[in-house]
């Protein structure tokens, strides 16, 4: 069992390595993509600085908490897109019958598919997240919690994208809906949860899993709460299992295709 896991991880790591090697063919594009993504993220934070000059508290958050929220969002989303970028374009693979080459390999289909592409600008997101964490002031406990919640956030975001992508096994033209839901999730992740009331609060905690991905973690990093901590880790495991079940249920309905294609 352990050997199988080790071998699977070896293939996944090779896959990620080869994806990054592909992007590094043009070093100038590679570096500028990363730097400009960081700058792009930084410009939005300026708006928050201006808002906090007008008010001390927005939705129960101080500037430091907003920075933590942005840092965790950028790091989780970034890591998810660096390691598992294909989870965000799963619909396209299903609809155009591009899962064949993964299905004839003696490895876990889902992991092989997810790690078969990478998004280089997402490295900029991930690094930006770490920069913001250090900008909040270094604290060993918070640093490790941040890394842990980046992990749970990555799992939650990836699992959510996978569930939406897997719907294409059942319904046609689901990719637009999936993209909108993922974009919606990222937008919600960058605002303090205190500003959401009623339906929108229900949405961010129970429909789009933003609450467990970033809001609870930010609250825990501000003031540790063991109950919340268990909720977040439990939810990440639950969503991951749900995504795996949905994907493999759907895979039985996969119909492939005879389109000509190349692995780019």
């Amino acid at each position: 069992m352990l050997t199988a896991v080790r071998r699977q991880l070896r293939v996944c790591m090779l896959s990620v390595k080869y994806n990054i090697m592909r992007e590094m063919i043009n070093p100038v594009t590679f570096v500028t993509n990363i730097i400009f993504m960081m700058l792009n993220n930084a410009t939005i934070l300026v708006q928050w600085f201006i808002l906090f000059r007008l008010r001390d508290d927005i939705g129960g958050y101080t500037m430091k908490e907003v920075m933590l929220l942005w840092g965790l969002t950028a790091a989780s989303f970034g890591l998810s897109r660096v390691l598992f970028a294909r989870a965000f374009s799963l619909s396209e693979l299903i609809v155009s019958g591009k899962l064949d080459s993964y299905l004839v390999q003696p490895k876990n289909v889902l992991l092989s598919v997810m790690t078969s592409a990478t998004n280089i600008s997402a490295i900029g997101d991930f690094l930006y997240g770490l920069v913001l964490l250090f900008a909040c002031g270094f604290n060993v406990g918070r640093f490790f919690l941040f890394l842990l919640f980046t992990g749970t956030g990555t799992v939650i975001i990836t699992a959510f994208a996978l569930i939406l992508g897997s719907l294409s096994f059942w319904f046609v033209r689901m990719e637009m809906f999936g993209n909108q839901m993922v974009s919606g999730m990222i937008s919600f992740m960058t605002y303090p949860d205190g500003i959401f009331r009623g339906v929108s609060r229900f949405l961010v905690y129970f429909v789009i899993p933003v609450g467990m991905a970033v809001y609870h973690p930010v609250h825990i990093m501000t003031e540790f709460d063991a109950g919340m901590f268990l909720e977040v880790t439990g939810y990440a495991v639950f969503l991951m299992i749900a995504a795996v079940i949905v994907f493999y249920r759907g895979l039985k309905r996969y119909s492939s295709s005879s389109l000509m294609e190349a692995r780019m």
Partner: peptide
């Protein structure tokens, strides 16, 4: 081997 589908990584 699927003649119409390539399984090799083209950049490698």
């Amino acid at each position: 081997v699927f003649g119409q589908k390539e399984q090799l990584w083209t950049h490698l």
